[in-house]
Computed example of a mutant assay.
Amino acid sequence: MNDQVLFFKDNRFWVLRGLQMEPGYPKTIDHLDFPQNINKIDAAAFDKNTGKTYFFVSNQYWRYDENSRSMDRGYPRKTREDFPGIGPKVDAAFQHN
C-alpha cells in the first residue's frame, strides 16, 4: 500500500500516509471486499514478500492482494489450520524487519 498505515475501529478504517490522514476516510471495511456480516478486524499483517495482507477475524482469516486490490479466492480460511503455532484467534500482529 505504498507506505500507508491503516487503522481499524469496529467496521471502519482510516489510511495514514506519512503524518497525514488520506482524504475520504473513514471508510467501512466492505470497501476491502469483506462480507457485510463482518463488523470488525481483530488484526492485520502485511507480507512484503508476497504483497498480501492477512486480516484476522475471530477464528478465520482473509488474504488481500494489494496489487489487484481484492480478496484472494478461497477465503476465509481457519486460522488454526494454516497457522497452528499461534492459536485459533489472533488479536494483534507484529512484523519485525
Rank of each mutant, 00 (worst) to 15 (best):
R12D: 04
L32R: 10
D65A: 07
R77G: 00
F8D: 05
G87A: 03
A43C: 07
R12F: 08
P84Q: 04
A45C: 13
R69Q: 15
I86E: 05
R12Q: 13
T53N: 04
V5G: 01
W14L: 01
Y75V: 00
A92Q: 06
F56R: 02
K48Y: 10
V90D: 01
N67Y: 10
F55P: 11
E22M: 13
E81W: 04
D10A: 04
F7Y: 15
F8M: 06
N37W: 09
A93N: 07
Y64Q: 02
M71K: 14
N67D: 12
N97L: 14
R73G: 15
F46P: 03
V5M: 10
F56S: 03
F94T: 15
I86K: 04
K89I: 15
F7N: 09
H96P: 00
R12C: 03
L16W: 04
F83A: 02
N59T: 14
T50L: 08
G85C: 07
L6Q: 11
N67S: 14
F7R: 09
Q4H: 03
Q60M: 14
F94R: 15
Q36P: 01
N37H: 11
Q36D: 10
D42N: 14
G85N: 11
Q36K: 08
Y54L: 13
N11Y: 00
F7E: 08
D3K: 11
D10C: 00
V90M: 01
D33F: 13
A43G: 05
K48H: 12
N59E: 12
F83R: 04
G85P: 02
I41D: 01
K40H: 12
R77L: 11
T28D: 12
